[in-house]
């Protein structure tokens, strides 16, 4: 390893690497965040970073369909979903602090272990890939795992949904960086899925709250068969 090696990557690749790092940073920020409002803002930022990196990939590799998916990201993840989420929590009035099942430093430690695993697991895959940004696959995988961890450790429904969306962000990022994006149809399908999922979950929230007077999904434990 030498300091000069990084200079072999073109500038656009370096920017994408930076985006990847910021994605991961935001993933960790979400993992360590207790407040729902900040969580949504972080999610929005993650969408913005995703948009930027997709845009850069699209421009540098002249892949026009990526421009579309960048636009889709912008509309869906930076504008629409955060807006819906904001409205949702206002309607549900759940601005309070989120309590976590594990304490935050422990969660972070687990997160670090996940990153180490993700980096090593992704190494053979990224050797196969020929794109300029292949090193970011490990980070994308780490983002997915971190979001998954967040889903596990949160006890309230709204943060779980945000974690679910963040996981989709990670997947999308992996796709862009490894193979310059999925086919358009798949992407549209996923976008639709996310949208529909969001709506269903929104309805679901209201139902939970009506039923239990709280959004704490630990109440769901009671719903299992006795």
């Amino acid at each position: 390893m030498s300091p000069s090696l990084i200079h072999t990557i073109p500038l656009s690749g370096q920017v994408i690497n930076l985006c990847a790092a910021i994605m991961l940073l935001l993933g960790f920020a979400m993992l360590s965040q207790r407040r729902v409002l900040t969580l949504i803002n972080l999610f929005m930022l993650q969408g913005l970073v995703l948009f930027t990196s997709t845009l850069i990939v699209a421009i540098t590799t002249h892949q026009n369909h990526l421009l579309w998916s960048a636009g889709l990201t912008l509309v869906l993840k930076v504008i629409a979903l955060p807006y819906i989420l904001h409205r949702l929590i206002r309607r549900l009035s759940v601005k309070w602090d989120v309590d976590t099942l594990l304490n935050i430093p422990t969660t972070m430690l687990v997160g670090i272990a996940l990153v180490v695993i993700a980096f090593n697991v992704a190494q053979p895959i990224s050797h196969l890939s020929g794109t300029i940004t292949r090193a970011t696959i490990g980070i994308a995988l780490a983002c997915v795992l971190l979001a998954f961890l967040m889903m596990i450790t949160r006890s309230k429904a709204v943060p779980q949904v945000i974690a679910f969306l963040a996981m989709e962000n990670g997947l999308f990022f992996a796709a862009t960086s490894a193979t310059y994006g999925m086919p358009m149809v798949v992407e549209l399908g996923i976008a639709l899925d996310v949208m529909v999922g969001m709506v269903i979950l929104g309805v679901f929230f209201f139902q939970i709250r009506q039923q239990f007077d709280s959004l704490d999904i630990r109440h769901m434990e009671r719903a299992k068969e006795q």
Binding site: M1, N17, A20, F28, I112, V116, F119
Partner: peptide
């Protein structure tokens, strides 16, 4: 994490 990211993204 910064060190780990360095090892992944920047180290040859």
């Amino acid at each position: 994490l910064a060190m780990l990211v360095h090892l992944l993204l920047e180290a040859g």
